[in-house]
Nucleic acid binder design. Structure first.
Length: 591
RNA sequence: GGGGGUGUGGCGAAGUUGGUUAUCGCGCCGGCCUGUCAAGCCGGAGAUCGCGGGUUCGGCCCCCGUCACUCCCGCCA
């Protein structure tokens, strides 16, 4: 390489006029006029137009004419200001161009499989197979640079606030609960397995007991579960833990972090403290524990209106212990077609609801397939409760509570999108607090809502023996535009309480000792009260960038089947490797 | 595990009630061109229509299966 750059492709301006400079980069586009040839030269900093003129060097110009997209070149020449009227105000460097005197072709490129700078509509298979090219495109480059910047702000924030960054093991131990583990066989210990961490949970609690008050880590986590648009099996948590704190202390740190992020990234002032909502209210009014507060369409509880309803579907649902709830779509009569309303049924069937009922509030009375069943006074009581006015459309679900919440929660979002009720530029942060300690699993047994190290609210401790499902915990989630951006809790720092929780979860003493022995032991050696939280970094970056998929903020993401099309992972391994690990595959046997 | 969507030259798309020489744009190759900036003009190459069956005189089109990508439900303490 003879010509080394003196500048990057994004920095030359009018002030550099007449300077002799050198640039390195990739050919993005060429415009060949036979006489004069323009090339757009790019690197990650920007784009500079370079000009090849045969009157400067016929030889150089001739080679330039053969350059194609993604060829790698080095050029030297003189910065000139563009002729009158020829400036390009779309480019930072648009007032200048570089007349090339010397050209070095560092590497020719094969014709790229797709237009790397306009790959949004290209099929994922091609993009993921050629990820190294996709990542050369402006869009993903900017996303990755943005991510780096945000991560750096976060790291600085914690360092500036007396947090210690500590790395925890990637090779660790399988946990009995939670997501499926990714397993790694141990060669040295025949027949034994490591697991990749689902989160550094136990280590960070251990670090609090060690006295590393205020720990943080940008930690890679692994969960072997199915993927979604906002979920990858390998993802990054901003993990933190603090000693001698209560819930409000942890929440305050996170609020301050977001305040800094909003200021530095968007130059916006985040209003603190962030609003808080209880889990119960979120489920009732928004149907999910991560409510999107950018729009209304709140869910209204109607069981007292309909408990004796003439409409059997409603009355029976309530009699069976279920609920009737509804949302009011203001002015929906004008904006929703009959088809829109009919399509609700297949839509809510996804969430195991049998159907969705509706009432159009017309000027001349209600229009609906169900009102004819109502008894006297029902419609009036309903309108009153829903604040219904002429032009509104009321949408109902009657079912068991989980189905009502999920269905109406989803319909709420569905109609908000359809009716453009969401300001896409808003970044809405809020807290959901007072989660229940336990949820019922499919057998009706208690399973932790957060994780088994979460502390119950002190005032609810007595209820642990009476009604475990009534116990609330000191757990909190931070919600960004209806997505869980992070969650945490105050932890149990008392061995007896921890043992009690394990036993409520059906983890007997032996299993507890085997799986979490060190934690139970450590809790007996001066464990301070502590609590923390973990943020989903990928998801936050995604929401900040308004990206539609988490793939857009991860350099090398997996496909929905959790494979990597670039490396072709996961792949086969040799019989020797397996043998060394004492592993035998059963795949052939299963058929 | 279940449901939906997509699959046509390298990329993005069109393709009528089943009969076309499978169309268009970009890119690619050749040529012209001294001021463009996703340049323009002329010419050219490039496709067993994801794969496998079936129905039919005849399938890009209809049916069955299958694969890949994708969105959702389940799952994700």
């Amino acid at each position: 390489m003879k010509i080394k750059r003196t500048h990057n492709c994004g920095e030359l301006r009018k002030e550099h006029k007449d300077e002799s400079i050198a640039l390195n980069g990739w050919v993005e586009n060429y415009r060949d006029y036979g006489g004069v040839t323009f090339i757009d030269l790019t690197d990650r900093w920007g784009l500079t137009q370079i000009v090849f003129d045969p009157s400067i060097s016929g030889e150089v110009h001739k080679i330039a004419q053969s350059l194609r997209s993604q060829d790698v070149i080095a050029v030297s020449g003189k910065v000139t200001s563009r002729p009158e009227g020829m400036a390009n105000d779309k480019l930072d460097t648009g007032e200048i161009e570089v007349y090339v005197t010397e050209l070095e072709v560092l590497n020719k490129s094969k014709t790229p499989p797709f237009d790397i700078h306009h790959a949004e509509d290209v099929n994922q298979e091609a993009r993921l197979k050629y990820r190294f090219l996709d990542l050369r495109g402006h869009h993903l480059q900017q996303n990755m640079i943005f991510r780096s910047r945000v991560t750096n702000i976060i790291r600085n924030f914690f360092i500036n606030n007396e947090f210690v960054e500590i790395e925890t093991p990637i090779l660790t131990k399988a946990t009995p609960e939670g997501a499926r583990d990714y397993l790694v066989p141990s060669r040295v210990n025949e027949g034994k397995f490591f697991a990749l961490p689902q989160s550094p949970q136990l280590f960070k609690q251990s670090l609090m007991i060690s006295g590393f008050d205020r720990y943080f880590q940008i930690a890679r986590c692994f969960r072997d579960e199915d993927l979604r648009a906002d979920r990858q099996p390998e993802f990054t948590q901003v993990d933190l833990e603090m000693a001698f704190v209560d819930q409000d202390d942890v929440m305050a740190v996170i609020e301050n972090l977001f305040e800094v992020l909003f200021k530095e990234v968007f130059n916006k002032d985040l209003k603190l403290p962030l609003p808080r909502m209880t889990y119960d209210q979120a489920m009732l009014e928004y149907g999910k524990d991560a409510p999107d507060l950018r729009f209304g369409l709140k869910i209204v509880e109607l069981s007292d209106v309909f408990k004796d309803s003439g409409f059997g579907v409603f009355a029976n649902a309530i009699a069976d212990g279920g609920f009737v709830r509804a949302i009011n779509i203001k002015n929906g009569v004008d904006s929703l077609s009959r088809k829109d309303l009919d399509e609700m049924t297949p839509f809510v069937k996804t969430y195991r609801a049998k159907g969705a009922a509706w009432i159009k509030v017309n000027e001349d009375g209600p229009q609906s397939p169900i009102v004819k069943f109502f008894k006297g006074g029902e419609i009036e009581a309903l309108y009153e409760k829903m604040g219904a006015e002429t032009g509104d459309v009321l949408v109902f679900i009657a079912d068991k509570e989980s189905v009502v919440c999920q269905s109406l929660g989803a319909l709420r979002l569905h109609f908000a999108k359809k009716l453009n009720l969401i300001d896409e530029n808003e970044l809405n942060l809020s807290w959901v607090v007072d989660f229940p300690m336990f949820e019922k699993d499919s057998d009706g047994n208690p399973t932790p809502t957060h994780h088994p190290f979460t502390a119950p609210k002190p005032e609810d401790v007595d209820k642990l023996d009476e009604d475990v499902f009534a116990v609330k915990s000191n757990a909190y989630d931070i919600i960004l535009n209806g997505s869980e951006a992070g969650g945490g809790s105050v932890r149990i720092h008392d061995n007896e309480m921890q043992q009690k929780i394990f036993s409520l979860l059906g983890i007997d003493e032996e299993e507890a000792r085997e799986k979490f022995g060190f934690l139970l032991e450590a809790l007996q050696y001066g464990a301070p009260p502590h609590g923390g939280l973990a943020l989903g970094l990928d998801r936050i970056i995604m929401l900040f960038l308004k990206a539609e998929s988490i793939r857009e903020v991860i350099a090398f993401p997996k496909t929905q089947k959790a494979t990597c099309l670039m490396t072709d992972a996961p792949g086969d391994v040799s019989a020797e490797q397996l043998e060394e690990l004492c592993i035998e595959s059963t795949v052939e046997l299963e058929d």
